[in-house]
């Protein structure tokens, strides 16, 4: 039996009650196996504490190592230690929008009902980490460069990313749908992705105050003694990010389910 594909997560939630085996999706391609929120939640529920716990442990190890165990930098002294927060924040600010853009494409092309839910859930932690990146960068800039802020290519494009997040969040909250996002919002998510390669290349294309990339495909110009805690904090904050996204998706789906139930009760 072929089931009509619901148009949005909201629609889907209204059509399918949250029951185990409520709908057989065996005939669907693999990506749509988790189109059923019940099936997604079955996976997300145990995954959330795993991501959260693993993330916090890795962050604690990485921060302790970065603050206490590693030697200071030959040029910057102890102020180099802000790297262990600044770099993961930058990675998640940019990685967040990349994931949001991919989710937007999946939403527009395949009409996957959870893609918009995921994109909406990514936006707020993405904005948060972008802000952390800007603030830590500013604090780091004062003792090293001698300035809190300059309008150089890297800093300006990163600030633009924060504003793009704000615009996305405003646009996502402009419609009636509080679970997923509108198609216009998804299009904005894709268009905004043009800023990601600009941020990445800004220190290569233009003369900038910010130094060039330290970690490239050819290797790292950060000495191994200083580099290793960065792996812990990058993975730690990434797991924390994943946990936040899963929590937000679950909360939004639960809210939609509650509203759908209230509507059904009101109609009955």
């Amino acid at each position: 039996m072929r089931v009509a594909r619901p148009k949005s997560a909201q629609g889907l939630l209204e059509e399918i009650p949250f029951r185990k085996g409520g709908l057989s999706l065996k005939a669907r391609p693999a990506m749509h196996a988790y189109a059923n929120p019940a099936r997604f939640l079955k996976l997300a529920r145990p995954l959330t504490p795993v991501c959260l716990g693993l993330g916090l442990i890795l962050i604690l190890i990485g921060c302790y190592a970065g603050l206490v165990l590693t030697p200071k930098d030959y040029l910057q002294g102890d102020s180099v230690r802000i790297l262990y927060i600044h770099v993961p924040a930058a990675w998640l600010g940019m990685g967040g929008w990349s994931a949001l853009a991919i989710a937007s494409i999946v939403q527009l092309v395949w009409r996957h009902p959870l893609a918009g839910v995921a994109a909406r859930a990514i936006a707020v932690p993405g904005a948060l980490f972008t802000a952390v990146c800007l603030v830590t960068g500013s604090i780091w800039g004062r003792p090293t460069w001698g300035t809190w802020w300059e309008w150089d290519g890297r800093m300006t494009s990163m600030l633009v990313l924060l504003f793009l997040y704000f615009a996305y969040i405003a646009l996502a909250n402009a419609g009636d749908d509080r679970t997923s996002v509108s198609r216009a919002t998804a299009i904005f998510g894709i268009v905004g992705a043009v800023n990601i390669p600009i941020i990445n290349r800004s220190v290569v294309w233009w003369n900038s105050l910010h130094q060039g990339p330290s970690i490239t495909l050819r290797g790292s110009t950060i000495a191994p003694e200083l580099l290793w805690p960065l792996g812990f904090t990058v993975f730690g904050f990434s797991f924390l990010f994943a946990a936040i996204v899963l929590m937000r998706m679950r909360a939004n789906l639960a809210e939609a389910k509650r509203e759908a139930r209230l509507r059904r009760l009101a109609a009955a």
């Binding site: 930098d73 790297l83 460069w145 300059e150 130094q211 330290s214 950060i222 000495a223 003694e225």
Partner: peptide
Amino acid sequence: NLLAKHDERYMPPELAG
């Protein structure tokens, strides 16, 4: 006004020495 620009290398003082 002067701003200092450092490069992308980070290393312990011993190694730099």
